[in-house]
């Protein structure tokens, strides 16, 4: 019984991870940037959800406004900061996003992020769903469905829209894409914006479960990094499978051994896997 309940919760966790790591994969694919500040966007989304809810707005409004705000901030950051190091070596982008993560976390600490707060679940989503003999809170069902729907929407958008075509082209070969007239600057602005907005959505919907404080994104960032490595850096379908694998491992590990030991278990598994399959589940990970 415990196992079945853990499995369901693992799927919930996997869905959140999926939504969160898609942004990480996207920004890596187009800009070749490993974004250490992605966790800070998650924290920012969660905190923004709390601020909006405290100012009297309903949950749904917060769910809409926070990602848009964080997304715009992402566009601004890309224009003002990332654009400065576009042609620098990879090391600089890692250092830059790392510094940015510290900066955002520092600002959040000053804006009330020292205390752990919980976003209230809207009344429509309270209650429990019976799945067979297992009870799962309604909110978690909603959370998973939202994450899966957003993921599908993003994938369809990437496949069918003009923007998606550009993103996929830049992902496959940035130089060739630029030769064909894709404006890399504008594309990167939009990609960072979408990526930040995705992180913020997961932050807001996660806030009733994972709570909200300045460093709430740290742990999920590590899990998301494990996800993208397991799936292969830059591989979308790898990330989808890996998100659920990591989600299940984390929840089962927490259920049976406790949270910290689960994290160690995950790390050992990832290391073991890297010995034989350094390019992820589908062998699509980039090696440059």
């Amino acid at each position: 019984m415990l196992a079945a309940s853990l499995a369901l919760n693992g799927l919930v966790m996997g869905s959140v991870l999926l939504l969160f790591s898609l942004g990480l994969t996207l920004i890596y694919g187009v800009g070749r940037i490993v974004n250490f500040a992605h966790g800070a966007f998650f924290s920012l989304g969660a905190m923004a959800g709390i601020w909006l809810a405290n100012s009297g707005l309903p949950f749904w409004a917060a769910l809409l406004i926070a990602p848009i705000g964080v997304g715009l901030l992402g566009v601004l950051l890309d224009w003002a900061v990332f654009a400065r190091i576009r042609d620098r070596p990879m090391v600089d982008s890692l250092l830059l996003t790392f510094g940015l993560a510290l900066l955002i976390t520092g600002v959040l600490y000053e804006l009330g992020g020292r205390n752990v707060q919980i976003l209230a679940i809207p009344s429509a989503l309270q209650g429990v769903v019976d799945i067979g003999a297992i009870k799962l809170p309604m909110y978690r069902v909603f959370l998973s469905l939202l994450a899966i729907l957003l993921t599908i929407a993003l994938l369809l958008f990437l496949k069918n829209s003009d923007w998606g075509l550009r993103v996929r082209a830049a992902n496959d070969d940035p130089e060739m894409g630029a030769c064909l007239g894709i404006d890399r600057e504008n594309l990167m602005h939009s990609v960072v914006g979408v990526s930040a907005a995705l992180a913020a959505v997961s932050g807001v919907v996660g806030a009733p479960i994972f709570t909200a404080y300045a460093a709430v994104g740290d742990k999920i960032l590590i899990l998301a990094f494990m996800t993208v490595i397991l799936g292969g850096l830059g591989s979308l379908r790898g990330a989808i499978v890996a998100a659920y694998v990591v989600g299940l491992i984390t929840v089962f590990g927490e259920g049976y051994f406790g949270g910290q030991l689960a994290l160690m278990l995950l790390f050992v598994l990832v290391m073991a896997m890297l010995i034989n399959w350094p390019r992820g589940f589908f062998g699509e990970g980039r090696t440059e």
Partner: peptide
């Protein structure tokens, strides 16, 4: 708010 100055300076 040392972290802000630290992060900003780093960037």
């Amino acid at each position: 708010s040392w972290l802000i100055y630290f992060g900003g300076f780093f960037v």
